[in-house]
């Protein structure tokens, strides 16, 4: 495994019972220092992937490897912090006591350390208020504080912005960005709120029905989401020389059937005529623009089509 990556999964699969394949041969490549966004609908398999790579669920098949950790896999897991599904907090205890339970498990009994973590997530003034009385946002922040105990190198955040109000979302986003920038923590964050992920993530994986449909960097995804001329034809290889001859340089052959052209978008009619002159029939040629959400729907729609 390359030193570039903190975590690589290899054909990771999880089956529940005989009929439910929650995760199907997933291969993730998470770079050190990245904020890796796992995009998928509810039930796509995001949480199950997180549970497996944090040791909470046993993979049915496949494996995962952490690099940069010395020692055994158990020690590697000790360098992981996680907030998966709802925060695991004791509702009848204070934020301080909840953190203390986790700290003691890590061999940390320092009061100042606990207070520092509470301050980091803005819960330093909760006093004797029981965690069960916290708002959803406060509970999420307490969950993150607990995930940060032991100074992890890798943080797993499963739908952390679910149920938060706009201000809470902004605060959480700033906190995650700060943790990544200041402490160098690699973060795997899942969400189905793509707009928020787009503001944070440096890398993405789109997951649908337990399978990774696409893995790309922010730049690659930006490129795919740009306004573009989309040409669909039975065989695009014959079209490429025409595009070249017309001086287009910023284009991408997506597949045997699809070409994206990212420049001179107002010349689509002229380009269509040139292709027709060469005796090539296109199925469609038009200008498309999409944001991340549209792109996600398009990609997962295709994936569903393939599976069907």
């Amino acid at each position: 495994m390359s030193d570039e990556f903190l975590l690589v999964t290899e054909n990771l699969s999880k089956r529940y019972g005989k009929n439910v394949l929650a995760v199907d041969n997933v291969n993730l490549h998470i770079k050190k220092g990245a904020i890796y966004g796992l995009i998928g609908r509810n039930g796509a398999g995001k949480t199950t992937i997180m549970k497996m790579i944090s040791g909470m669920a046993i993979p049915t098949s496949g494996s995962y490897t952490y690099s940069g950790f010395n020692g055994t896999a158990e020690e590697a897991l000790g360098r992981v912090g996680a907030l998966i599904e709802s925060p695991a907090i004791h509702p009848k205890m204070t934020a301080y006591d909840n953190l203390k339970i986790k700290c003691l498990a890590y061999g940390i009994g320092d009061k100042a350390y606990i207070n520092e973590k509470l301050k980091l997530v803005g819960l330093e003034n909760t006093g004797k208020k029981k965690a069960g009385k916290f708002s959803l946002g406060m509970k999420q922040r307490l969950g993150i504080a607990m995930a940060l105990v032991g100074e992890p190198d890798f943080l797993l955040l499963d739908e952390p912005i679910n149920g938060l109000d706009p201000q809470g979302i902004v605060e959480l986003r700033e906190l995650i960005a700060r943790l990544n920038a200041e402490k160098g923590i690699t973060i795997l964050i899942s969400s189905h709120i793509l707009e928020e992920l787009a503001k944070l993530a440096t890398d993405y994986a789109i997951i649908d029905k337990g399978r990774i449909v696409e893995e790309s960097t922010k730049e690659e995804l930006k490129m795919k989401c740009r306004d573009k001329i989309v040409i669909k034809a039975a065989d695009t290889s014959a079209i490429v020389p025409i595009i070249d001859s017309k001086g287009y340089t910023d284009y991408q052959v997506i597949s045997n059937n699809t070409i994206y052209i990212f420049e001179r978008l107002d010349e689509v009619a002229a380009l269509n005529m040139e292709i027709a002159k060469a005796g090539i029939l296109v199925d469609s040629i038009n200008v498309e623009s999409s944001d991340l959400e549209e792109y996600f729907l398009m990609v997962t729609g295709t994936a569903a089509g393939v599976q069907n």
Binding site: G55, M56, A76, G81, A82
Partner: peptide, 18 residues
């Protein structure tokens, strides 16, 4: 019961994996 009600093992397990 509190272990299962709160899901606290999610926190503890990461401390060692054991």
């Amino acid at each position: 019961g509190a272990i299962h009600n709160t899901g606290m093992d999610k926190n503890n397990l990461l401390a060692s994996g054991h």
